[in-house]
Nucleic acid binder design. Structure first.
Length: 539
RNA sequence: GCCCCCAUAGUCUAGCGGCCCAGGACGUCACCCUUUCAAGGUGAAGAUCGCGGGUUCGAAUCCCGCUGGGGGUACCA
């Protein structure tokens, strides 16, 4: 069983494309071997539209696929027995086959100009007729054709669609689909620039690359009958088809740029894990049973069958993706893995030297930097703070960063949903001094500054005798201290938390103190005491 | 306009004629845990299975129509 994913290098990999690619991989590497057949996944670049070509897009597509772990057995970079795998390198093949179709009476040269086609469409619209090519050149006499050719008139090659009858084909997800032949146009196969259209290149390549199953986006359903007719005209067997449903935007319609992140690269830069994205995409239109939600790559390879993919389109739900991402961060990644994964985001936010980013995370760092540098340069004055603007440039970092990143990840893994949240959440662990904060936060609700001051001064007094590594002892001592001061535990804990973290939310107080360590804790509390004294003096 | 596809709670889905006056998940709400925020646990609300006809002893499940949503209608893929 051989399948293929064939993106056109006109932009980044859309998550709809990623889903299609994933189904291809799961079929070739999962379902096929399970059913005792060999499986190969082919990557083919469809760069036949020279006008829409984007420099570097093919590389970007491949980077995104690899990031998702969707690896191909044959493709432009790895080669294979049926190459080349880039269509622009195969143009003679397409031209030959267009000629073959003309010779066998299944296609014809069309000398109509774009202007004439445009005019025909307008006339049809004016008369309320369905727009489409009027087959003007289908019945030119040989003399007319020869004259045009002799005059050097440019031409396209169009497929001679049967004028009557019907074409049926079987879709693995939907069953049989029937089209009336007279509803299908004589579409262009070869353009005047000598490049093939999708229809020609696809059918020819899928045949010569021995593709057995075509899993492609549902938007191709309407042209499937054309493709079937082409296989027949060539005398080839058509592969099986499965048209995978589109991903819709919450507002309806195809998911597009206006709906925020839509490309795999967008999600990568926004702090999603490849496994979580893949898991989410798998669930969008497929399920194993009535309860399983978390699927590792191995699970998917073991459980996926194309037959269980739903034929109905589904709406993209960012909240569920976020939940899955959080599940992976909190329950599936180890602390070491999290610390490594989060490194590029920390580095870009200035909380880790770039040199401290592990080799394996370099690519992510580069991607983040490339995508954000431009935006960063033209900093919006009104702007909301972005995830990487959590500490001022030049902030002094702690000297024992690797340990701190690791320990802070251990404490914070249950509250990171996106990796981009890490810089903010980890900031006060990684800097030498607590980032600036409003001293008013030091005062708990329903309390006054005098009380907060009294509490912190009492802490300053007992701090030297505490071993912060002994969380239980610290807790016991501080609880006792609260009693002595006639405060509720929380009324004592909150000022300490704010003094040390610069915010009212943090992991458990005692583990936080342990990780930040005696010297910095004590220095931060001293500063908080000063701040309180100052504000009391002014008031 | 014409052609095609799809149709279970706001969203993703289980269900493939009786097990379903419909199960799971996200989200929402409440409670528990608790030094904050999370995480975790427990529970609740939320679907006349889009509507109307059939078929059948019996339909979310099969058939037809309608409605709604989506896609296609390019010398783009």
């Amino acid at each position: 069983m051989r399948v293929r994913f064939s993106p056109s290098p006109t932009g980044q990999l859309h998550i709809g494309g990623a889903k299609t690619a994933m189904y291809n991989v799961l079929f070739a590497h999962g379902q096929a071997p399970r059913e005792g057949k060999g499986g190969a996944f082919v990557l083919r670049i469809e760069d036949t539209d020279r006008k829409r070509l984007v420099e570097g897009a093919a590389e970007g597509l491949m980077t995104s696929l690899r990031w998702l772990g969707l690896n191909w057995d044959e493709g432009p970079d790895v080669g294979g027995p049926y190459g080349p795998y880039v269509q622009s390198e195969r143009t003679p093949l397409y031209r030959d086959h267009a000629e073959k179709l003309i010779a066998s009476g299944h296609a014809y040269r069309c000398f109509c100009t774009p202007e004439r086609l445009q005019r025909v469409r307008e006339e049809q619209r004016a008369k309320g007729l369905p727009p489409g090519y009027d087959r003007h050149c289908r019945n030119l006499s040989q003399a007319e054709i020869d004259a045009m050719l002799a005059a050097g008139e440019p031409y396209t090659v169009r497929f001679k669609m049967p004028l009557e009858g019907e074409t049926r084909f079987y879709d693995l997800l939907r069953g049989e689909i029937v089209y009336q032949n007279d509803k299908i146009e004589d579409l262009v196969l070869l353009k005047t620039d000598g490049y093939p259209t999708y229809h020609l290149a696809n059918v020819v390549d899928d045949h010569f690359m021995k593709i057995t199953h075509i899993f492609r986006a549902a938007e191709w359903i309407p042209t499937a009958p054309l493709h079937i007719q082409m296989y027949r005209a060539f005398g080839w067997d058509a592969p099986m088809f499965a048209h995978v449903p589109l991903i819709l935007a919450p507002t309806g319609g195809k998911l597009s740029k206006r709906h925020g992140a839509t490309s795999v690269e967008d999600f990568r830069a926004s702090g999603y894990l490849p496994d979580a994205l893949l898991n989410y995409l798998a669930l969008l239109g497929w399920s194993k049973d009535d309860k399983t939600e978390i699927f590792s790559r191995e699970d998917l390879l073991r459980d996926f069958t194309i037959e269980r993919v739903s034929p109905s389109p589904s709406t993209f739900d960012r909240q569920k993706l976020d939940w899955l991402n959080q599940q992976y961060i909190n329950h599936i990644l180890t602390v070491d893995e999290l610390a490594e994964t989060v490194a590029p985001y920390l580095a870009y936010a200035g909380l880790l030297p770039v040199a401290g980013v592990p080799e394996r995370q370099r690519e992510t760092y580069t991607l983040i930097a490339r995508r954000n540098d431009a935006e960063r340069a033209q900093a919006t004055p009104d702007g909301e703070r972005t995830w990487y603007e959590v500490v001022p440039a030049g902030t002094e970092l702690a000297d024992d960063l690797p340990r701190l990143v690791h320990d802070a990840c251990a404490l914070l893994k249950d509250r990171i949903r996106l990796l981009t949240e890490a810089p903010d959440l980890l900031s006060y662990f990684l800097t030498e001094h607590v980032p600036g904060y409003d001293p008013a936060l030091l005062v708990p609700k329903k309390a006054d500054p005098e009380m907060a001051l009294k509490a912190l001064e009492a802490v300053v007094a007992v701090l030297p005798e505490l071993d912060l590594n002994d969380e239980e002892a610290v807790e016991a001592r501080l609880r006792a201290l609260a009693g002595e001061l006639e405060l509720k535990a929380g009324q004592l804990f909150m000022p300490i938390r704010v003094a040390v973290c610069g915010r009212t939310q943090s992991p458990g107080l005692f583990e936080t103190l342990r990780v930040i360590g005696q010297p910095r804790v004590s220095q931060r509390i001293d500063l908080a005491v000063d701040a309180l004294k100052r504000s009391l003096a002014t008031a």
